[in-house]
Amino acid sequence: MSLTTDDVRHVARLARIALSDQEVEALRGELSDILAYADKVGEVAAADVPPTSHAYPLRNVYRDDTPQPSLPADEATATAPQAEQGRFRVPRIVEEP
């Protein structure tokens, strides 16, 4: 498994990380090495072996439809880097017409 710098940039775009050129180059080699090691999982476990997502199988774990207290109004946005009038402030998402 050998990644190109374009592969790394593509994955960085998917992961929403604005990597520098140096980071892209370093990650190209590191990710290739790690994935080559991880590739060993292909040596065992044929397709008839069922995958395990959780070691302790619990099924149908639900919550009653009973309202619980929400956060006090001033606490919901208290952790936000930018808030305004009880709202989370972000850069404009929709372009001006």
């Binding site: 592969d7 992961a15 990380i17 604005a18 990597l19 980071e23 972000v90």
Partner: peptide, 27 residues
């Protein structure tokens, strides 16, 4: 843009090992 804000935040906010694992997982 919001996307640039998010991508720059994540570049500055995460260290090398965290980025490495996010990248492996995303791939």
């Amino acid at each position: 843009t919001t996307e640039q804000m998010m991508a720059s935040t994540r570049d500055a906010g995460f260290g090398p090992e965290v980025k490495r694992r996010i990248m492996i997982g995303t791939y």
